[in-house]
Amino acid sequence: FSITQFVRNLGLEHLMDIFEREQITLRVLVEMGHKELKEIGINAYGHREKLIKGVERLI
Rank of each mutant, 00 (worst) to 15 (best):
Q23K: 12
A44S: 15
G11A: 06
E22D: 06
G11D: 07
L10E: 04
F1Q: 11
H34D: 05
E22H: 15
H14K: 09
I3V: 10
R57I: 11
L12E: 01
I52Y: 03
G11H: 09
F6D: 00
S2E: 13
I24Y: 04
E39S: 12
L12H: 01
F6M: 06
L51G: 01
L29Q: 02
G41A: 04
I3P: 02
S2K: 08
H47A: 15
V28Y: 07
E49G: 04
E49M: 12
K50F: 06
I59E: 07
V28C: 11
S2N: 14
T4V: 14
M32L: 08
M16D: 05
Y45K: 12
E49Y: 10
R27P: 11
V28Q: 15
L26H: 04
I24V: 10
F1P: 11
I42Q: 03
E31A: 13
G54M: 06
Y45E: 09
H47T: 15
F19K: 00
N43G: 13
V55G: 06
R21L: 06
L37R: 03
R8V: 11
V30P: 06
G41Y: 03
M16H: 06
F1E: 10
K38T: 11
R27D: 07
G54A: 15
Q5E: 15
R27C: 15
Q5Y: 09
E22I: 04
I42R: 04
R57H: 12
G54E: 09
R48G: 01
A44T: 11
V30I: 14
I18W: 04
M16V: 12
K50E: 09
F6L: 11
E39W: 06
D17N: 11
R21M: 06
S2H: 08
R21C: 06
E36H: 04
T25K: 05
L37C: 01
E49R: 10
F19G: 01
L10V: 07
Q5T: 12
G46A: 15
R27Q: 13
Y45C: 07
E13N: 09
V55E: 00
G46T: 14
L51V: 08
D17W: 14
L10D: 00
E13A: 13
Q5C: 12
I42W: 01
K50A: 14
R8P: 01
I52A: 02
E39M: 10
L29C: 02
Q5F: 07
I42M: 05
V30L: 11
N43R: 12
E39D: 12
I42F: 04
E49P: 02
E20L: 13
E36K: 06
D17E: 15
G11V: 02
G41I: 04
L12F: 05
L29G: 03
S2D: 14
E22G: 07
G11C: 07
G54Q: 05
H14T: 10
F19E: 00
L26K: 02
H34Q: 04
R57P: 04
R48Q: 04
L26A: 05
K38A: 10
T25D: 09
R21N: 08
G54T: 06
D17Y: 15
L29W: 05
Q23Y: 07
M16I: 15
K53A: 10
E56W: 07
L58S: 03
K53W: 10
K53I: 09
I18V: 08
I52Q: 02
L51P: 01
V28T: 13
V28N: 13
E13D: 13
H47I: 15
M16K: 08
Y45P: 08
I24E: 00
F1T: 12
G41V: 03
E20T: 11
I52H: 00
R48C: 07
I24G: 01
M16G: 08
H47M: 13
E49L: 12
E49N: 09
E36V: 03
G46P: 11
R27Y: 08
K53F: 06
E13W: 09
L12N: 01
M32C: 03
L51D: 01
G11E: 07
H14I: 14
G11L: 03
Y45R: 11
G46L: 12
I3T: 05
F1A: 10
T4K: 12
L58C: 08
S2I: 08
R57N: 15
F1I: 14
L58P: 02
V30T: 13
R8L: 10
K38M: 12
L10H: 03
L58D: 04
D17F: 15
M32I: 04
I52D: 00
E56H: 12
R8T: 14
G41N: 02
Y45F: 14
L10S: 03
I40R: 04
L37M: 09
M32V: 02
V55Y: 08
I52F: 02
V28W: 06
K53L: 10
K50C: 10
I42V: 12
F19M: 06
L51Y: 03
N9S: 15
K38H: 08
V30R: 12
I24A: 02
M32Q: 01
E36A: 05
G46E: 15
E49W: 07
N43A: 13
K50R: 12
L10A: 04
E22C: 08
L15Q: 02
G54H: 06
Y45V: 10
G46D: 15
